[in-house]
Write a protein that binds this DNA or RNA. Structure first.
Lengths: 206, 206
DNA sequence: TATATACGGTACTGTGGAGTTCCGGATATC
DNA sequence: GATATCCGGAACTCCACAGTACCGTATATA
């Protein structure tokens, strides 16, 4: 975390409302997704969070720090690896990941990514945070699915899991950032059946 | 083009150096690729082009106009569809597109794209220009290759060409923008053999 | 040679946003 | 109740950059 002044907590006076941290970080992500890093102003974030600008600066020292924290915090609101779907087939697992809440979550993450892409060169710390929050979790989930498929004998044991993990995210990112089209269920299914499964070496079913 | 004041060419005085247009546009793309749209200043562009800021504003009315023109002009410096490689096999054609100059060109385009992604929401005109210059040309080239493969009977006639065209660009974009790794020959070959050809339904060779 | 425009360069103006300060009101401890 | 901190909000300072104006010089026409 960014602020380290709470360990010497003040004994007098009104306490900081802890829930405001999350509210402000969430507002930051919203504005980031809508207008991008440079288009975002602290006033926008404060207004969206229904807070004062001073309240934001009481908790984060600067705009870069705020954005870094907001991006990093997305990491923890992700699907945890212990509760992934397990349908018995690779296709079933991949399709089971397509759910309205998951789609909306991914969509927001992609928009946030679009808003900070140009910053990644200038700020290695932000680049690391973005990787941990936006790239790694989805890759980790896919890795589980492909490993299961190998263990089952559903796909060849020498399949390049790391490359397979990237296909879905890559197609979704390209469609959002470059083509500016919606990533809907139909698209995701067509990527699974038309790209991922053939690449994985699944002997054509469906 | 942006400027329309040359058709009524002045008969007196020093003429505008036509080569400066290209120099300034090229400098704009360099700065755009290095620092992104918002990080770019007109002074940077002028310095890189070894020109004065006034010279830039004599030719383009504003920063958005300059960037729009610079992005749009990349469209014309692309591979023309009439001189594409024709090796006789889909894999051969795709591999033949991997050449050092082509890789460097693509790398720069991807960095420019990264620099303007967050602007695409704010400027539909820039979004269109970026699509025409960065997305469409590569898709058009791939479309030729896949159509040839269908005509040859190398891949199924009902293959989804539009989806296949995007795989390469999507994987390359993701690797550059999100993973921040270099798109080298080895990576591209692995994408062709491990993703594109299986997705196209090529009966495994190699 | 006189005139008119482009050139690189510098100095200027105007503006939007980062970050700070202060206010009246709310909420906590002692 | 006294004190101290947080709150939302508004007003402020400061600065970087977009865009303009001007200078001395270079290059064109007539």
């Amino acid at each position: 975390m960014t602020q380290t002044d709470l360990d010497v907590a003040p004994k007098l006076g009104r306490r900081r409302d802890p829930s405001l941290d999350g509210t402000i970080l969430d507002a930051t992500l919203d504005v980031l997704a809508e207008t991008g890093y440079d288009g975002m102003t602290i006033d926008m974030v404060a207004a969206r969070a229904k807070a004062g600008k001073a309240t934001v600066y009481r908790r984060w020292t600067s705009k870069p720090e705020l954005v870094l924290d907001a991006v990093a915090c997305m990491k923890y609101k992700d699907v945890d690896l212990s509760s992934l779907p397990d349908t018995g087939t690779l296709r079933g697992d991949l399709v089971a990941m397509i759910k309205p809440p998951s789609i909306r979550d991914s969509e927001r993450k992609l928009k946030v990514m679009a808003g900070i892409v140009s910053m990644l060169t200038r700020s290695p710390e932000l680049a690391d945070a973005a990787y941990d929050a936006l790239v790694a979790p989805r890759a980790a989930a896919n890795r589980v699915f492909f490993q299961r498929a190998i263990d089952r004998g559903e796909i060849p044991a020498d399949a390049d899991i790391e490359r397979l993990c990237m296909i879905g995210p890559a197609m979704a990112s390209y469609r959002t950032l470059m083509l500016r089209k919606a990533v809907d269920r139909e698209f995701l299914i067509s990527v699974i059946d038309g790209v991922i499964l053939p690449a994985a070496g699944v002997t054509a079913t469906a």
